[in-house]
Amino acid sequence: MEIITTQNAPAAIGPYVQGVSTGKMVITSGQLPVDPQTGIMSEAIEVQTHQSLENVRAIIEAAGLTTGNIIKTTVFVKDLNDFAAVNNAYEAFFKRHGTVFPARSCVEVARLPKDAMIEIEAIAVA
């Protein structure tokens, strides 16, 4: 198992790593919508969704894969009333990168670290 780290995604805020690789599979930790350059988190759910996905992408790419290798995502949202806005940003992200949509789960949670509105994790396969 190889630990994946990149400056292009926020550093872990606890006792975990950004991602791990088994050689054929990359699994990311949940990515908050924190801009890794500024440490800032937008208040708009669409921007938060995009940033979480960009952070996932950075980890996948640090492992030598692309968004096209992502086979599964899990989306944690603070409010399912944001589902349509999350879907729009999620769809735009994958279309912009020219990839098929991966399998996905989306669940509402009571609270996320840093009071984020969304957190996204992914599994990618070489």
Score class of each variant (00 low, 15 high):
28 T>P: 00
27 I>V: 14
47 V>A: 10
45 I>D: 00
47 V>L: 11
22 T>H: 07
40 I>M: 14
42 S>A: 13
28 T>F: 01
38 T>G: 10
23 G>H: 05
22 T>V: 07
22 T>K: 07
22 T>L: 09
30 G>I: 02
16 Y>Q: 11
20 V>S: 08
42 S>R: 02
19 G>E: 04
38 T>N: 08
50 H>T: 15
29 S>A: 15
28 T>K: 00
44 A>T: 12
23 G>I: 11
44 A>Q: 14
46 E>A: 02
47 V>C: 03
34 V>G: 05
27 I>Y: 05
39 G>I: 07
27 I>D: 01
26 V>S: 04
20 V>D: 05
41 M>I: 08
20 V>P: 03
46 E>V: 00
29 S>I: 05
38 T>R: 09
49 T>I: 07
30 G>M: 03
20 V>W: 07
34 V>P: 03
34 V>A: 06
46 E>C: 01
42 S>E: 05
32 L>G: 06
20 V>A: 08
46 E>F: 00
39 G>R: 02
47 V>W: 01
48 Q>H: 14
23 G>K: 08
49 T>W: 01
16 Y>S: 11
25 M>C: 09
35 D>G: 08
18 Q>P: 03
50 H>V: 14
35 D>I: 08
42 S>V: 03
46 E>I: 00
20 V>G: 09
50 H>P: 02
35 D>K: 07
44 A>W: 09
25 M>K: 11
24 K>H: 09
44 A>K: 13
42 S>T: 04
19 G>C: 04
32 L>Y: 09
16 Y>W: 15
37 Q>N: 15
45 I>R: 00
33 P>W: 02
17 V>Y: 13
31 Q>F: 09
43 E>I: 10
30 G>N: 02
36 P>R: 06
17 V>K: 12
27 I>E: 04
46 E>T: 01
16 Y>V: 14
20 V>I: 15
30 G>L: 06
44 A>E: 14
33 P>L: 05
16 Y>E: 13
18 Q>A: 06
24 K>S: 11
39 G>S: 09
33 P>V: 04
19 G>F: 01
19 G>N: 03
36 P>A: 12
22 T>Q: 07
48 Q>C: 13
38 T>M: 10
16 Y>G: 10
31 Q>E: 13
17 V>P: 04
45 I>C: 00
25 M>W: 06
33 P>C: 08
37 Q>S: 15
49 T>D: 01
19 G>K: 02
50 H>G: 10
49 T>S: 08
42 S>Y: 02
